[in-house]
């Protein structure tokens, strides 16, 4: 079953537009949702949660239309928005007490279990938690109300490497049973190399590609050629940089002829993001 099915999502602002955003997330997997700042990640996530009024398109969560079953589906969605704080001067237990009443399937034992597992002290105030602990608290809440789809907007941004690694391990352990799915937006692509099964790459409001992680990077090649070779491939390159050794450029694997002799490697996610961003800049 699809945990998340987004089709032809369109949303226009005066200075920005989501254009035909389409991607699907299978239940039981982690999808990394990557893109530069301002590429449309948060707008897409807010559209999924019905916080924004989309111009057109469809969002289905766990097989049901979000537009028609918003309340029912929000019982099944857990979220963590990195960097956004609510009622920071309240104690965890006060906040939890207000939140748990909204969820039909709240499991108090599970909540206690997650507090212990994540080493959260419910007598602390939100403001006293580190960034990583805040994400863990959001996860504890989401998992205690039986969320099947976790939507995490930049959950690891601003965290130290140890906390990030810790969270990534937690994410991976959550999807093991195949019931929970995670959509995880970030611009820290190394996190996704560690834990994502699928990658959806959004750039300037448009989904460039959504596919299995290895397939995603295999679609591209990073060329390191001499400047004299640039003209042979220039038209096919997504974008390129010239340096003292020659040029480095990103190309679709299908457009690259290995017999050309230009050295090529499989790029990492970060390189793909950077070269797509350069393409935008060169068009401006």
């Amino acid at each position: 079953m699809l945990a998340l099915d987004i089709r032809n999502l369109n949303k226009s602002y005066p200075a920005f537009q989501l254009k035909d955003v389409t991607f699907q997330l299978e239940q039981g997997y982690i999808m990394g949702f990557i893109g530069a700042n301002g590429a449309g990640k948060t707008t897409t996530i807010k559209s999924i949660l019905n916080l924004l009024h989309i111009d057109s398109g469809e969002v289905h969560v766990l097989g049901k239309s979000m537009a028609e079953h918003e309340l029912e589906l929000k019982q099944e969605i857990g979220y963590a928005f990195g960097g956004v704080d609510f009622y920071t001067r309240s104690k965890l237990k006060t906040l939890t007490d207000a939140i748990r009443r909204f969820y039909k399937h709240w499991d108090e034992d599970a909540y206690r279990g997650y507090l212990r597992r994540f080493k959260l002290d419910e007598n602390k105030k939100i403001a006293e938690l580190s960034a990583g602990m805040k994400v863990k608290y959001s996860l504890a809440l989401a998992l205690s109300h039986g969320a099947k789809l976790l939507i995490l907007d930049e959950p690891t941004s601003g965290l130290d490497p140890v906390s990030r690694d810790d969270l990534l391990d937690i994410f991976q352990s959550l999807v093991v049973d195949g019931e929970i799915s995670i959509l995880f937006s970030t611009h820290i692509t190394s996190d996704l190399e560690k834990c994502a099964d699928f990658i959806t790459f959004i750039d300037n409001g448009r989904v460039i590609r959504s596919s299995e992680k290895n397939e995603f990077v295999e679609t591209y090649r990073l060329l390191n050629g001499k400047e004299s070779e640039l003209n042979d491939v220039k038209d096919k390159l997504i974008s390129y940089k010239i340096n003292s050794f020659g040029f480095t450029g990103l190309i679709h694997a299908a457009d690259f002829d290995p017999s050309s002799g230009i050295p090529s490697t499989v790029p990492n996610l970060e390189e793909i993001m950077i070269y797509f961003a350069r393409k935008e800049h060169s068009h401006v």
Binding site: L49, L51, E70, L71, E72, K74, Q75, Y79, F81, V84, D85, F86, Y87, T88, I99, F102, Y103
Partner: peptide
Amino acid sequence: SQNDLMFTSMMPVT
């Protein structure tokens, strides 16, 4: 200041 609008909107409420 407590971002109540976002906080409440995320919950299963109309």
